[in-house]
Computed example of a mutant assay.
Amino acid sequence: MKALIAEFIGTFWLVLGGCGSAVLSAAFPESGIGLLGVSLAFGLSVLTMAHAVGPLSGGHFNPAVTVGLCVAGRFPARGVLPYVAVQVLGAVAAAAVLAVIASGKPGVDLAAGGFAANGYGAHSPGGYSLAAAALTEVVLTACFLLVILGATSRQAAPGFAPLAIGLALTLIHLISIPVTNTSVNPARSAGVALFAGDWALGQLWLFWLAPIAGGVIGAAAGRVLFDAPLAPAGAPR
């Protein structure tokens, strides 16, 4: 139960911090945070919660990470569905809080503003195609899993995994915000899509399929490259 609560809290913080920076701060040019600030917000949210609650759950905060760690032999299959369920619940709860805050300003239209939802085609920030969006999400999620598996393996320097993982997520956002608004996390995508409008829900399938496919690919490669950690990552206690 502590592991599930930790995953809920960690995913809540990730969506509130990352998407909140995009919806509340980056929307105002005078804030000055821009793409770099939003990217750092996502990375810092993972970094801080990996330190805070990671020892309880493994600090997944992402269905693609949970599935990938299972494929890599780092996480038991029986824990996948409970983890994914609480991750989605945490993301939805954070999106709901963010929606209430954003609606506190008169004239705000969450759907018109996109609400930090992920998209392709007309809903890609840079107008990128479905194929470009899919390739971006698969490759970057695969690389994210490789960083996670390498940083938590026996070969890695102890104590630095949260920093490596948080910085990797920052880099991923710097690359892919213009393409898809960056998912690499189906829970993050699902949470805000509920408030962004019909188009976001209609395109949500890609931001489940591509990150999970990328997670599986990265996990398969990591299983060959890296030793297992001293204990299974986030195994339910």
Score class of each variant (00 low, 15 high):
residue 102 A to R: 09
residue 74 R to C: 07
residue 105 K to D: 10
residue 216 V to H: 06
residue 50 A to E: 12
residue 119 G to Y: 12
residue 148 I to C: 10
residue 17 G to V: 02
residue 54 G to Q: 10
residue 154 R to P: 09
residue 130 L to G: 09
residue 125 P to G: 00
residue 162 P to N: 09
residue 142 A to G: 13
residue 51 H to R: 15
residue 86 V to A: 04
residue 115 F to R: 03
residue 128 Y to A: 13
residue 187 A to W: 06
residue 131 A to N: 01
residue 72 A to C: 07
residue 234 G to Y: 02
residue 117 A to P: 11
residue 63 P to K: 02
residue 170 T to E: 12
residue 115 F to A: 02
residue 19 C to Y: 05
residue 188 R to P: 11
residue 202 G to T: 07
residue 182 T to H: 03
residue 162 P to E: 08
residue 105 K to T: 12
residue 234 G to D: 04
residue 101 I to K: 07
residue 221 A to D: 02
residue 153 S to R: 13
residue 143 C to R: 00
residue 196 A to P: 01
residue 146 L to A: 03
residue 216 V to R: 05
residue 94 A to R: 09
residue 190 A to F: 14
residue 68 G to H: 01
residue 235 A to G: 09
residue 37 G to I: 07
residue 194 L to H: 07
residue 44 L to G: 10
residue 58 G to S: 08
residue 148 I to E: 06
residue 166 G to T: 14
residue 166 G to Y: 14
residue 178 P to D: 02
residue 89 L to D: 04
residue 7 E to F: 06
residue 32 G to E: 04
residue 229 P to T: 13
residue 220 A to H: 01
residue 192 V to C: 05
residue 17 G to A: 10
residue 92 V to L: 15
residue 110 L to M: 07
residue 190 A to R: 01
residue 64 A to P: 10
residue 61 F to Y: 15
residue 201 L to E: 09
residue 119 G to N: 11
residue 30 E to M: 02
residue 94 A to V: 12
residue 87 Q to K: 09
residue 163 L to V: 15
residue 21 S to T: 14
residue 131 A to E: 11
residue 153 S to I: 12
residue 57 S to C: 02
residue 169 L to I: 15
